[in-house]
Computed example of a mutant assay.
Amino acid sequence: MNTANNSNSFLKSGLRRVLSSRLAETLTTPHGVDRYLELFNPTWSVHEVRAEVVAVKHGTADSVTLTLRPNGNWQGFRAGQFLRLTVEINGVRRMRCYSPANSVHAADGLIELTAKAHATGFVSKHLKQGLQPGTVVTLSQADGVFALPDQRPDRVLLISGGSGITPVMSMLRTLLDEKHQGRITFLHYCNTALDMIYASELALIAAQHANVELIRCYAQPEQGGELQGFFSREQLRAAVPDYAEATAFLCGPPAMMAAVEKVWAEDGLGDRLHLERFTAAPLVIDGGSAEGEVRFARSERLAVNSGATLLDQAEAAGLRPESGCRMGICKACTCRKTHGVVRDARTGELSEAGEQDIQICVSVPVGTVTLDI
Rank of each mutant, 00 (worst) to 15 (best):
Q313K: 08
L310R: 00
A308M: 12
A316Y: 06
G292D: 01
S306K: 07
A317P: 09
Q313W: 06
A316R: 11
Q313S: 07
P282Q: 09
S299A: 15
A317D: 12
S289M: 14
G318Q: 09
G324V: 05
A317W: 07
A303N: 03
S289F: 06
V304A: 11
S289Q: 15
A280C: 12
E315A: 06
R320Q: 15
E293K: 14
S289W: 07
V284D: 12
G318I: 08
A297D: 10
L302H: 13
T279K: 14
D286S: 10
R301I: 02
N305S: 01
A303F: 01
R320Y: 12
A316E: 14
G318W: 05
E300N: 11
E300I: 03
A297K: 14
A316F: 03
R320W: 10
E293M: 13
L311N: 03
A316H: 08
T309Q: 05
N305P: 03
A308C: 11
E300S: 11
C325E: 03
L302T: 09
L310H: 00
C325T: 05
E315D: 06
N305E: 03
L310D: 01
R320D: 11
S289E: 15
T309M: 06
S306N: 08
T309G: 06
A316N: 12
L319N: 08
S299Q: 14
A290Q: 00
I285W: 01
G288C: 05
D312A: 14
E293G: 05
E291M: 03
L310E: 00
T309A: 07
E322G: 13
L311C: 07
F296Y: 10
L283S: 08
A281D: 15
G292P: 01
P282L: 13
N305R: 02
E293R: 11
S323N: 13
P282S: 12
T279I: 15
